[in-house]
Design a protein around this nucleic acid. Structure first.
Length: 614
RNA sequence: GGUUCGGUAGCUCAGCUGGAUAGAGCAUCAGCCUUCUAAGCUGAGGGUCAUUGGUUCGAAUCCAAUCCGAAUCACCA
């Protein structure tokens, strides 16, 4: 796997840094004031690396904590003394930021002034751009989805699609121009397999005549091929052939190989069949993509790109980076880098996967002059992507360092990997349909939306069902493999999409009844739960940039859950409509509005919409 | 065998650039709807953070070794 950090493309220009300071996060503010204060007390220079700023634990008083131990050595003083001097000075120097401090062991706990929270709320409660960062002029391509045109999408594709889409949105929110791309694997021996099977067994059937979704229709013939192939191999083995020979010489396999040759030679009837069957698959994919909300700015087809990269190989040969073996095949020796020798051109001169990928990377760069190229591909291809980047670097290609493999773990079943041969693949369309049906069932049982039209209900079921599914797949760290148990349906309670959607709908319900009339700054003394919501809201911009830096939507999912949970506690404890005073009511309405905006924009980045009512 | 990734509550996962008594959700148990949506809220039980050693004021987090699991090392893509 590519271990280099995606951080490199987060370098900010001078101007952007200035803009950034205008809306500096609270933690950054605290760091800066501590640095300035330490510098003036001890007259030497400090940086944010000299101490840690943590959230204060619940059992202590305060909001943020400075860990003092790391300062003890260099200042040759006790933590208590440093804490006292620092705390005293911070309060006198920044009365708008800090109101109180206490020291327990080596921890300086600071209380943030209500003034700070009131200002935050005043400035941002209606700010639909809160959390978004200014345009930075960088262009990123995110390649994701990459389906094969011989079978329908499955659960693994869903994780890929949601991840890719969400990462693109995260980058946009951080000021990048993003191009979403998709490479369709539309040619090759596996495609010919379904073609052969259709030719032999379909008797002219089509998706239309069988009333089947095109991708599933074609996928069935892919399965049919494998059944037939197995049967033929078994027969040959029974006739005394050894297994390896039988696998090579099964008539249906020979026919398939012949078909691939014909395809490459451009034989018209093969090309026509290929176009027809791929067309069916694309029709099916389009339905699925539309439902799950995947879209692309640029689609590449392997049938167009599979010949690319040969000129780059030739250039590499000329430079002596590649070498030719006696049989004519071309290789690169990566043993010095701890890897193996890698083939880049077959002995017959045709290109391999690696060659095509280099060619495609070049094409992307030539076409769009992108600053960063992110590949959302499963971790089974870590080695391939590592080699790809290394080869590009050795060739000195300008985009080499900007290749980043966003490697994600497989989705496994409790019984292990999904295997198409054993029929344990969770089909994407089936799962989506099931989720929507479950959403319907839950909603009907609760009986809250009886006045909805049937169109509105359909939209709502889709919103909730897809919301649950997307959240479920995005809430886990992408790098890690995850386990999906199809026996237990995806939950609608707790750490889930519907929980957050529900929180949003509740807020909207209040806002339909109670008007936010006052937009002036509220000078209230804040109750603990009011402050806790504001405390969480304040972190949203930092979370957005952190999630983008790590290319990790699960950071956002965790944040949104904790925000919703905090708001729900606040909601259960304090009445908004019947607040103690008009001032409190307006304050709480502002908090509610801001929470709803943050929930909505955060969920939007995850590709999940939030309903006004549910 | 080489390389890479992972092992935290019964289950699914956070926390991992070292900081206070390791957190959520689900499941289990006990409470809360005649006032804003109970898809909610409050509380309880549940842990030798795989094991062993090291680094230090302090380790789930860093280092080393071991055990277990996974991926990969194709003239497939």
């Amino acid at each position: 796997m590519d271990k280099s950090s995606p951080y490199s493309f987060f370098k900010l220009s001078h101007q952007q840094i200035n803009r950034y300071f205008c809306c500096m996060s609270l933690v950054k503010n605290i760091q800066k004031s501590v640095i300035d204060t330490l510098t003036s007390i001890y007259s030497s220079s400090f940086s944010e690396k000299d101490f840690q700023v943590n959230q204060t634990k619940d059992e202590f008083e305060g909001d943020y904590t400075i860990v003092l131990f790391s300062l003890v050595k260099s200042l040759k003083s006790s933590p208590e003394l440093i804490g006292k001097q620092l705390g005293e000075n911070l309060i006198t120097r920044y009365p708008d930021l800090f109101t109180n401090y206490n020291i327990i062991k080596g921890f300086l706990n600071l209380s943030i002034a209500d003034e700070y929270w009131n200002t935050l709320l005043h400035q941002h409660h209606h700010d639909s751009c809160f959390g978004k960062h200014p345009i930075n002029g960088k262009k990123v391509m995110v390649e994701y989805s990459s389906p094969n045109t011989n079978k329908p999408l499955h659960l693994g594709h869903l994780r890929n699609n949601f991840l890719g889409w969400s990462v693109a949105e995260l980058l946009k929110a951080n000021g990048y121009e993003v191009l979403k791309s998709c490479i369709v694997n539309d040619r090759g021996i596996h495609i010919c397999k379904s073609m052969i099977a259709w030719q032999r067994f379909a008797h002219g059937a089509t998706p239309a005549t069988t009333n089947k979704k095109g991708d599933h229709f074609v996928g069935d013939y892919y399965v049919k091929f494998n059944d037939e192939y197995k049967k033929e191999v078994k027969e040959l083995v029974e006739k005394g052939m050894n297994e390896a020979e039988a696998e090579k010489n099964a008539p249906i396999m020979l026919a398939t190989q012949q078909m691939l040759n014909d395809w490459e030679a451009g034989k018209p009837e093969v090309i026509d069949l290929w176009k027809k069957m791929n067309g069916w698959v694309y029709e099916g994919f389009e339905v699925t993509y539309k439902t799950i909300g995947s879209d692309f700015d640029k689609t590449y087809y392997e049938s167009d790109t599979y010949l690319l990269g040969k000129d780059i190989v030739q250039a590499g040969l000329d430079k002596g980076i590649f070498f030719r073996k006696e049989d004519g095949s071309v290789w690169i020796d990566l043993t010095a880098d701890g890897l193996d020798e890698k083939l880049v051109l077959r002995k017959d001169g045709t290109s391999v996967y690696m060659t095509q990928d280099i060619g495609l990377a070049q094409q992307k760069y030539d076409q769009y002059k992108i600053d960063q190229s992110i590949y959302v591909i499963g971790d089974e291809q870590n080695y391939h992507m590592k080699v790809l980047k290394l080869i590009a670097q050795k060739l000195g290609l300008p985009y080499a360092d900007d290749i980043y493999h966003l490697s994600y773990g497989m989705v496994e079943l409790p019984t292990g990997k999904m295997k198409s041969r054993e029929g344990t693949v969770v089909d994407a369309d089936d799962l989506v349909a099931e989720m929507i049906a479950t959403a319907k069932q839950h909603t009907e049982a609760l009986g809250k939306v009886k006045d909805f039209t049937s169109e509105e209900l359909d939209v709502l079921y889709k919103t909730i069902g897809l919301g649950a599914m997307k959240f479920y797949l995005l809430r886990v760290d992408p790098k890690k493999k995850m386990i999906f148990n199809p026996e237990e349906s995806i939950d609608f309670h707790g750490f889930t999409g519907p929980f957050i959607q529900y929180t949003f709908a509740r807020i909207k319900s209040i806002l339909r009844k109670e008007a936010l009339t006052e937009n002036s700054k509220n000078e209230s003394t804040l109750l603990p739960l009011e402050k806790e919501v504001l405390f969480t809201l304040e972190q949203f911009p930092s979370i957005i940039s952190e999630a983008a830096k790590e290319l990790n939507p699960s950071t956002l999912a965790n944040y949104l859950f904790s925000l919703a949970k905090t708001f729900n506690s606040f909601y259960a404890e304090h009445s908004i409509g019947n607040a103690e005073s008009e001032k409190k009511k307006q304050l709480r309405l502002q908090i509610s509005v801001m929470t709803s905006i943050v929930l909505q924009s955060g969920m939007q980045i995850m590709g999940i919409s939030v309903p006004e009512r549910m």
